[in-house]
Nucleic acid binder design. Structure first.
Length: 591
RNA sequence: GCGCCCGUAGCUCAAUCGGAUAGAGCAACGGCCUUCUAAGCCGUCGGUUGCAGGUUCGAGUCCUGCCGGGCGCGCCA
């Protein structure tokens, strides 16, 4: 139960009641009323701005209105005290019994606590990674992967029907360049060209993909086909080398993601899209709607590209949908631009039932957002919505020193290498400790440290500590005293310490946090929440060191122990629930 | 030149579709802690939220204009 949503209903009822009594005019707009936790806990547990929102249209003073509404709210079950404060806030303080009921919610729901019906089963498509199948993933891709996957899990927990999707850019010039690079290596392997030729071509920049990872593809083709492609024309070998390359690279990419625990529901191929005629179809549709014309773009202001010349192009009227300039759809050789096929792809997603689409991109694609959103508006008649999450770069460090990366020097750090070194769970959690559009420092040394500075450790430790306490309790008090059924029946009224209540209040925020993070498409909020929850719990545990009467296990008082162990169990479940959204496995003990 | 993102304590970052006195951690300073799992706990110091206007009951948040940083800017994806 999201307790704030619960009290939203109460506030709405109070407004209705007051209206019926003649205290408010009929038909006021109540949509701006919020019910939320106050910034300052000293103000109470729940606050609403209802009186301030309604005062102007009602022609009444905010505080006076607040007093009138308070009367109705004071009668609510679970409300211990109502106060009007500041410019007209209504603050509710809830009774211990109300909080105990929330803890019982957790014990009953398990890690499903926080699951919401907010999404009402609405389909949402989350497209992420979508890296070119031309090489292994690097750390930046890893961030996008984790953000996309966690966002998908978050939306699923909030009640949306989520599809995870990967778009393979297997149709453009990039994969052709990769094919040529593989072919060159193949020729060297066959003795048709020399290694010196290869090195020279690489130095001259004629080989765009010089990574050694393509050697295995060249070798595999040689093993299968022998000298068949040595003298063949490019038109003959290119498709073969391209397919082999794409298949191998994609396999590698998906394997890297699988190691992170990431799996896709749909792998969409750009080439298949083009070959199916989807691009032609969507362009035709746009043309019929009058959104396409042939024109000449203004040259960009400021620095002019050397080879710029005015040229008539097939343009999408993106400016009609909020973009700054109209965008080209065809290259000069007649092939579709990437943008054109991407329009078709998003059109395809929409036809498959996704009015709500989320794309996770690297920040270097930022300039592309407006045109894609414009295109989505155009092809869906305004019915589709595209949110783009741009992921900023990850700065790799080791003990504070930047890890130098260079493709040329071969010191390029792949995602696999990072995951090998720190483990999947640490990587995933760390990738979610910052807003997606903020740069993120990732220090190999720090992320595996067992100190409070390391958020992964701090949160995992809270979970491990809960497990440890429960293990000890089972040993000292007996299994039947601490099993799920016994704890569900515990007399929570024994939890009288303010610190204990504080932890329950943190636990009870979880359902609201899930909903808000899901609406905002911001999974990182969970990381901050888990640190806060862990902090409250660690604090309580630590107090037990000095004040032994506060310890969770008191052998001489089994009912008291059970109440406190119920609280420990609640913390354990909510931490596990949060880590579950992140795809991080909670640990039962720290090594 | 234009567009997008960002600018919050010395540092790294929070701040709930616009809420009350802008919060944590690190660092610094002062104290405590020998264990239900040790890697900690408490306190102090620290702010014109880049600058200037505007909108309103109320602005870090929205609008306008500047300043500073990052990214992008027709046939790459």
């Amino acid at each position: 139960m999201n307790l704030f949503r619960h009290f939203e209903g109460a506030v709405a009822a109070a407004v209705v009641a007051l209206t019926r009594e003649g205290g408010l005019p009929e038909g006021l707009d109540a949509s701006a009323i919020s019910v939320e936790p106050p910034r300052d806990p000293g103000h109470g547990d729940v606050t609403t701005n209802a009186a301030m929102i309604l005062a102007r249209p009602a022609g009444r003073k905010p505080r006076e209105l607040a007093e009138a509404l308070s009367g109705h709210l004071a009668a609510m079950e679970g409300v211990e005290r109502v106060a009007v404060a500041g410019p007209g806030f209504i603050n509710l303080s809830l009774s211990p019994g109300f909080w105990f009921a929330r803890l019982r919610d957790v014990l009953a729901a398990g890690t499903a606590y926080g699951d919401s019906t907010l999404g009402a089963g609405e389909p949402v498509n989350v497209e992420f990674v979508s890296a070119n199948p031309t090489g292994p993933l690097h750390v930046g891709h890893g961030r996008g992967a984790v953000v996309g996957d966690a966002l998908a899990s978050l939306l699923a927990k909030a009640g949306f029907r989520v599809t995870r999707e990967y778009y393979v850019n297997d149709a453009g010039g990039q994969v052709d360049q990769m094919a040529r690079s593989i072919h060159f290596r193949y020729l060297v392997a066959m003795g048709a060209r020399s290694q010196a030729d290869f090195d020279r071509a690489r130095e001259a920049g004629e080989i765009q993909y010089a990574g050694a990872y393509l050697q295995e593809v060249a070798d595999a083709i040689r093993a299968d086909d022998g000298a068949r492609w040595v003298d063949a024309p490019e038109a003959a070998w290119l498709p073969v080398f391209r397919e082999r390359g794409v298949a191998t690279m994609l396999d590698g990419i998906l394997a890297s993601l699988a190691r992170l625990g990431i799996h896709f529901d749909v792998i969409a191929s750009e080439r298949a899209l083009v070959e199916r005629g989807d691009v032609t179809d969507v362009i035709d549709a746009l043309r019929q709607a009058g959104h396409i014309y042939t024109g000449v773009l203004e040259p960009p202001k400021g620095k002019l590209p050397d080879d710029w010349e005015p040229r008539p192009q097939t343009l999408f009227r993106a400016t009609a949908f909020g973009d700054d300039i109209d965008r080209p759809l065809q290259k000069s050789d007649g092939a579709w631009t990437y943008f054109a096929s991407d329009i078709a792809y998003h059109g395809d997603k929409f036809r498959r039932g996704f009015a709500s689409m989320i794309d996770v991109w690297g920040a270097d694609h930022g300039g592309y957002v407006k045109r894609m959103q414009a295109a989505v508006k155009a092809i869906t008649g305004g019915a589709g919505d595209l949110d783009v999450k741009l992921c900023q770069m990850v700065n790799l460090l080791d003990r504070g020193q930047p890890v130098k990366m260079s493709k040329r020097a071969g010191t390029f750090v792949t995602l696999d290498e990072v995951v090998d070194r720190v483990g999947r769970d640490v990587f995933r959690f760390m990738m979610l400790t910052r807003k997606n559009d903020a740069q993120l420092d990732f220090d190999f040394a720090k992320v595996v440290e067992q100190t409070k500075d390391n958020p992964v450790f701090y949160v995992q430790y809270a979970h491990a500590r809960c497990c440890s306490v429960l293990r000890h309790a089972a040993a000292e008090l007996g299994d039947t005293v601490v099993d799920a059924a016994a704890l569900a029946e515990a007399d929570l009224g024994r939890l009288t310490d303010a610190g204990e209540l504080a932890v329950i209040k943190w636990i009870a925020q979880w359902p609201r946090l899930v909903e808000h993070a899901a609406i905002a498409h911001e999974p990182h909020r969970i990381a901050f929440y888990l640190q806060d929850l862990a902090s409250a719990f660690h604090l309580l545990w630590t107090r037990g060191k000095d004040e032994t009467q506060l310890r969770f296990i008191t052998v001489s008082d089994v009912p008291l122990s059970q109440a406190r162990l119920a609280l420990v169990r609640g913390v354990q479940l909510v931490v596990a629930s949060g880590l579950g959204v992140f795809g991080v496995r909670p640990v039962a003990e720290l090594r």
